[in-house]
Amino acid sequence: MDLDPRRLLVLNAIARSGGLAPAARVLGHTRSAVSQQLASLEREVGLPLVDRSGPRLELTAAGRLLAATGDRIGRELALAVQQLGPVSDQVVQGPVAIGATSWVLARLAVRVLRLLAGSHPRVEPRFVEAGLPDGLRQLRLGELDVLVVIDDRDTAVPLPPSVRARVLSEDSYRVVVPATWDVPTGAAELSGRPWISAPAHSARGRAFARFASVQSVVPSIEHLADHMGAVEALLAGQVGAAVMPAYFAAQLEQATVTSLPVTGSQITRTLFRTGHGGAAAAARVAADALKQAARDYAEAATVTGGAKGDITVRPLRDPTEAVPPSARRQPPAAPC
């Protein structure tokens, strides 16, 4: 029997905190991620580790045994970090400029500022509203240290030199039509109809161009709207159909999400500078804070009912990363 020690640490956090949601807050994960780790550990062991029948989640005898093992692993790791402290400790400090879209700024910026203030108080973050083309230019020129972009996996933009990328979330595409339209049974029915697309450089613009080419769809008129709020308003006004990420499509009240196939997926990428200096270290911790803020936002949206549908946490690889042979047969990763 091979046990993943990281899952034992998760089980120990559940035992200490008394539930999945409190453990998620302690570990900095989403509740669904903790639940998935627990389910995986139970499959590895072949035994139930928690009793879910009562009003409060309780560990079984096997669960208590493994949680105690996780506690010992955690204490050993903490001791190792303490012993390495004098050698590896380095205070991360200095300014870091973070570029992001208005959507990201509105939802993650304050969370990132609070996380950095708590974990790296000497880092001086500064947010700049920036889209894909202008953000990439500023990143190349050194005006930005970190950039969050909405991209299309199949046509992802190449990275500037000395820049690494991390995928925060991934979502499949859906074709959405106004609620008053008949639900199309095939893409051909939407040729000659008005469409709400996006600028050619944007992820949605590229996804729509690919869909239109594959399905031979020719719009009668192609409206351009990049911001999701504008797309939602145009759909509510019965202006045209649109290709949208599934997460946003599910939130719409006055539109119909169709089952028409759209290839590819939309990814949210964090691009950050690499290297050995203080600026690179500040960029790295800012990227870490963005990842944590994205998880916290997803968790809050799920708990409060602000998101329709489940948010699944899975490992997400950037298009620039090599995919190991064992992962090539796996289904596409879902949003985190």
Rank of each mutant, 00 (worst) to 15 (best):
P184V: 02
K291I: 01
L136K: 12
A68S: 13
S88L: 12
Q330A: 15
P161V: 01
G309M: 09
R140H: 10
F272H: 14
L65E: 14
A322I: 03
I267P: 09
A188R: 06
Q251N: 04
S216H: 10
L20M: 15
S172F: 01
G309L: 09
R314W: 02
P325S: 07
A301N: 07
Q138R: 15
R269H: 05
A236S: 15
V128S: 05
G28N: 06
A100M: 14
A333P: 11
S172Q: 09
S162I: 00
R295A: 09
E170S: 15
Q90H: 14
D296G: 15
G186W: 00
L27C: 09
A80K: 08
G28M: 01
I311W: 14
G118Y: 03
E143R: 15
D226E: 15
G99Q: 04
A287N: 09
D288N: 14
R43S: 13
E253L: 09
V262F: 03
I150S: 13
A212G: 07
L41K: 11
A67L: 00
V303M: 06
D145I: 06
L144A: 08
P199S: 03
Y297F: 14
L66H: 10
L27R: 06
S220E: 09
R31N: 08
L8M: 08
R114I: 06
R328D: 01
Q254L: 11
D2S: 12
R295G: 15
T60K: 07
L316N: 11
V163W: 00
W103T: 10
T263R: 12
A23Q: 03
V50C: 11
G277T: 04
